[in-house]
């Protein structure tokens, strides 16, 4: 039996377009990378318009560079606003990262990557200012995603959960909780018990954040490359990430949950199998919550 209101989603990527549209699988939503659909005239735009007829769309950006001290690119924000206008997505998200900075004598460049920001007061001010600017233009709140970071900074005024909770409090934005990113960070930090470390992070967030801050969860696979765990979305969701996800759903309640897969893309059926596992987890916690609320009433 299909769930009445599924909460799971998949990241829809170009090689799956045709099969996905033919199969029309039961999903709560579909996520796409915003920048791939900025052009309203190309073939991808036609695909997204067709998918939008059947699914809620979550727009996930990688290019706003919300933590950049030199500000966000107004032209980028305008293109995103136009896409939001066209698609009317269920959610719009990007990352707590920077990418834009002055370089050499050539003006501002964009690293096309999700570069880490420091968890300092100054950095929070920059992020809040940029998030507010984008939200004002889009006329809707953003979800901001926690990063997998391969470097971080000695100076810090907040833990990461405190930093993100404060961001939400000051700007009204939500959090896109990427559980795989937490696991990647824990593994790269050589935590003795990475799952416990991730669960502690989630507990701290649940403790300091406004209830309902987390608007979406991301799950993905990672790979080991040259001495580091890389968040390349190239594999099945690992068992430790499923465990941590279960904990997140227990602490945060059912949240729309997405399977991301970007590298070495598998058959669509594999992706949908992962999404079905996510839906089963969400449904279990939804049912448990209903039972608890029913008993309390």
């Amino acid at each position: 039996m299909q769930p009445a209101h599924p909460m799971n989603g998949i990241g829809l990527r170009q090689p799956h377009y045709r099969e996905f549209r033919a199969a029309r699988p039961t999903l709560g939503f579909v996520e796409v990378h915003s920048e791939n659909f900025f052009n309203p005239h190309d073939a991808a735009a036609q695909v997204l318009a067709a998918v939008r007829q059947d699914y809620a769309i979550s727009l996930h950006g990688v290019g706003l560079a919300l933590g950049s001290a030199c500000g966000v690119d107004d032209a980028h924000v305008e293109r995103l606003a136009a896409l939001v206008e066209r698609i009317d997505p269920v959610r719009v998200s990007d990352h707590a990262s920077f990418a834009r900075a002055p370089w050499s004598q050539r003006g501002i460049i964009h690293a096309n990557d999700l570069l880490p920001i420091a968890f300092t007061h100054d950095s929070l001010d920059i992020l809040c200012s940029n998030v507010e600017q984008v939200q004002e233009r889009l006329k809707r709140p953003l979800l901001v995603e926690n990063l997998s970071a391969y470097l971080d900074f000695a100076e810090r005024d907040f833990s990461e959960p405190q930093f993100l909770a404060e961001l939400g409090r000051r700007t009204g934005c939500g959090l896109l909780l990427d559980v795989n990113n937490l696991m990647v960070n824990a593994l790269n930090a050589h935590e003795a018990d990475p799952v416990q470390s991730v669960c502690d992070w989630i507990d701290e967030l649940a403790h300091v954040a406004t209830p309902g801050l987390v608007g979406e969860i991301h799950l993905a696979g990672f790979s080991a490359q040259e001495g580091l765990i890389i968040d390349d979305h190239s594999a099945l969701v690992s068992e430790p990430v499923w465990l941590a996800c279960r904990h997140a759903l227990q602490r945060l309640g059912p949240v729309p949950t997405l399977i991301e897969w970007d590298e070495r893309l598998p058959a669509l059926s594999v992706l949908l199998g992962e999404a079905a596992k996510a839906e089963a987890l969400c449904a279990a916690h939804r049912d448990a919550r209903i039972a608890v609320e029913g008993a309390a009433a």
């Binding site: 900075a101 370089w103 570069l115 420091a118 300092t120 100054d122 950095s123 920059i126």
Partner: peptide, 22 residues
């Protein structure tokens, strides 16, 4: 904190970008 002046975020970001593209 060790009392040293803190790095501005703009400078921190410029330095990391410089290192990445160097």
């Amino acid at each position: 904190m060790n009392g040293e002046p803190r790095m501005s975020e703009a400078r921190r970001q410029r330095e990391l970008i410089d290192a990445i593209f160097s």
